[in-house]
Simulated assay, not measured.
Amino acid sequence: MSRRSFLMKMGAGVAAARVAGFGAAMSGAGSVRAQSRKPITLMVGFPPGGGPDLVARAVAEPARRDLGQAMVIENRTGAGGRIALDWLRNAQADGSNFALTPASMLTAYPHVYKRLPYSLAEFAPVCKLCIYHLSVVAPADAPYSTLQEFVAWARSTKEATFGVPGLGNATEFVGRLLAQAENLSLEPISYRGGPQLTQAVVAGEVSLAVNLSSNFIELVKAGRLKVLAVTSAVRSPFSPDVPTLAELGYPDIVFEEFIGIVARQGTPEPDIARLQDAMRSALQDATVRDTLARSEYLPDFKPAQLLGAELTASTERWRTLVRKIGFKPIE
């Protein structure tokens, strides 16, 4: 080998070593950055075991793996989900704080509460996760097994009540619309969350309960509750033998809600995009889809822009509905 060739090979080797060292350094820096990211807090405004909590826990594990970042689910319950959203509006907009919530907490509440501590404009949409309907259930030993029988019983006793997991959302409106349609004196009784409401209806504390179907599934299977109707536009694939309220003669009582994730306004767009992509992947996981199906949730991923459009449309629907039934805003 000539001296010239030897020097050229040596120079190339040094250059390659420098490039490799630079790449390793960059890789190491990236790892340090990944490790230094704060854990993501995914706030849920309902108790463990309730519907939104089930969705959060189903998607969290695959999202953690995809992000390579810790994710903590925190339940701040009470006030029908308002406490969690109030927390988010005051949290740092640094890409580590998010909330998983049913849409009505953002779109219905502005029309049903006089002093709501937050507004939709304070939140940035991240993604839509799934859709669901509500079920109207009764205690297993109730003297009625159909909604028509309940209406007749309620007229005769004048002591009928219905329980909900919180005031000012779709669960309360289902009961109020039913009462209005049948001229019944039905008063809502609010509980702290889904599990507490479920215990109440099993014990016979309320005549009916209206909530996410996921809260009642196992008890219905065990024969401790009976489903009288569902609020979907058509019969649910999960319970095809149960009639919809629409087909029972209540076309205005159709509620198909959705659950999504939001961030505080001002959260960096790259952080929103990272979580959005992780949730998109999570909803493609067969285990996640099976888990959601067992709780009667249908995956329906939508990115931030489409979620924002749906939230806006839902807000207008609630505005119209509140006016229609003459609902008086809650203090």
Rank of each mutant, 00 (worst) to 15 (best):
F150P: 00
R264C: 04
F123K: 08
G223V: 09
A170Q: 07
Q305W: 08
Y113Q: 08
Q35A: 04
A282W: 11
I259Y: 00
R76C: 00
F327V: 07
T171V: 10
V230E: 15
G81T: 12
S156A: 15
V164K: 13
L116R: 09
G260N: 10
K158V: 10
G11N: 09
I261Q: 05
V136N: 01
M8F: 02
A154Q: 14
R3S: 03
L85H: 05
R155N: 01
A25Q: 07
R82F: 01
L178C: 05
R294W: 03
F258W: 08
S104A: 04
M26T: 04
N183P: 00
L307Q: 09
A304K: 13
V262C: 03
Q180K: 12
S104I: 06
Y297S: 01
A34R: 14
A93T: 09
V19Y: 11
M105C: 02
L7H: 05
G194E: 15
M8P: 00
D94V: 07
T146Y: 08
I40W: 11
A34M: 10
G163E: 11
K302M: 12
K324V: 03
T312G: 01
G266C: 11
G51F: 06
I259V: 08
R57Y: 01
F22L: 10
K302W: 06
L225A: 04
A273F: 07
T171R: 12
V242P: 00
R323Q: 13
G175H: 14
P303M: 14
V201Y: 09
R37C: 02
Y113C: 01
G28K: 15
D66W: 07
L306P: 00
G13I: 10
M71F: 05
R64C: 00
I83G: 00
S281A: 13
L67A: 05
A140K: 13
R155H: 04
Y132N: 07
G194P: 02
L245S: 02
P52F: 14
G194Q: 15
A293G: 00
F258M: 14
L186V: 09
M43W: 11
L184Q: 05
